[in-house]
Nucleic acid binder design. Structure first.
Lengths: 229, 229
DNA sequence: TCATTGTCTTATCATATTATCACATTTGAT
DNA sequence: ATCAAATGTGATAATATGATAAGACAATGA
């Protein structure tokens, strides 16, 4: 079972805590930041899957945070704000926000909206709505975030899981080391050696024979690809 | 620019009209239905891109309409309802609704939310573009970075692949040794005999008979060109 | 807190790719 | 037909790239 990471950017500790506890109870991994600067930093260092963003931050307007994030990332942004004016909502959504919830809000509704965002992420990754992927002995259940080999569950670390998802979503396509690094780690780097290391780890977990892989194929000098039929 | 078609399923003629006019002013094509039955019928006959769905319909509960639609379609459903209870919202969203707007609503906000849905659609559509080159027995899938001869995959090294791409991009044109070297190796050199070596390697991989090539033609004293039809 | 798990780094070994060379073959001008 | 220049090709050496194990360190969870 792999958890989705959610970053809460909210300066009101009480609200932040309340949301965090509810999300954790539901199995999410939660990060919190209480200012725009901290939020952006946490984003680049932890590469969360979803952001809950308050607009009324102490150091910078939340709208600008959306703008900034959107210059380099497509992470789903769910705005949670006390500002209920139409103008604000339109602006936040048009600049790249994925949803807008006005305070006070129902926690259950917020969670449902997070699930919608999550569903959309899975959809655009998989392009089919089928939430289970099969290929030979490999089964990946995207909903439950579980991976099976010959019906035996194999545990993948978060990075390994992201890597596998990325490969499957681009089945058949060669992905360059840089691209893989950018997608999985969330930032660019000249040093992509880690991609190799994690590919090796992933292969050890899902391949019968790592010397002759059926799933993860190496394209020397270019990158990797998931085997097409 | 193609107009998006939006189906409004709403029994209150006044609201329905109001939304329709606003949407049309914004360039959308609008269909309206005032009952669940009509809505489902309109959906199957017109295949709209987005549905705005009221939950309080005269003949059937809107929640059931969502359920029904989701058995055969992934069309984005934006619920527009007077029912503001959390339970309703969660149910509608979890059953497959993409957003939930409570009446009374701001038209501008509704439109912004439609744009969000639209953006998400565009994102998942984008991935389907494929660029493939065919010539006789040769197939090059640029997207996947794969080369096939008679449906059998041939493995090319990075230099070989670059070379092939360069030739194809300039199909029919004669490319000088110097130009080819510059493009593939990235710098100029007096010594371009490697071009010869790699042409030979490439031919060995993609030509049936290297002595009588169909693809890579030699222009003695000048360079090479990829055969035009 | 301590044990466990995950991440990143480094070192080593294995493999694939690239560069170079020597020589064979082809080409085109005479 | 002959010959010099241009081109093709196979072998091999040099280099670049990849796989993997092991260990340091950080984060997480009971």
């Amino acid at each position: 079972m792999n958890k989705l990471t959610i970053l809460i950017v909210e300066d009101d500790k009480y609200i932040s805590n309340f949301i965090a506890i509810s999300l954790e109870k539901d199995g999410y991994k939660v990060l919190t930041a209480s200012s725009a600067a901290e939020g952006l930093f946490m984003f680049s260092s932890h590469n969360p899957d979803v952001i809950l963003l308050d607009l009324g931050l102490p150091d910078k307007d939340g709208i600008d945070v959306i703008k900034e994030l959107r210059t380099f990332s497509e992470v789903p942004i769910l705005v949670v704000s006390a500002r209920g004016q139409e103008k604000e909502k339109i602006e936040a959504l048009d600049l790249g926000g994925d949803d807008y919830v006005t305070k006070p809000f129902y926690m259950g509704e917020l969670m449902a909206r997070i699930r919608v965002v999550e569903r959309n992420m899975a959809k655009s990754l998989m392009q089919h709505e089928e939430s289970i992927f099969f290929s030979k002995s490999l089964t990946v259940d995207f909903d439950k975030r579980r991976v099976l080999i010959d019906d035996r569950e194999v545990h993948l670390t978060p990075i390994e899981y992201k890597l596998l998802l990325l490969l499957i979503a681009n089945k058949g396509k060669v992905l360059t080391h840089n691209y893989i690094f950018k997608q999985v780690w969330g930032y660019e780097s000249i040093d992509t050696k880690n991609v190799r290391v994690y590919m090796a780890n992933l292969r050890r977990k899902i391949e019968k024979n790592t010397a002759n892989p059926q799933f993860i194929l190496t394209e020397v000098g270019v990158g990797y690809r998931f085997a097409d039929e």
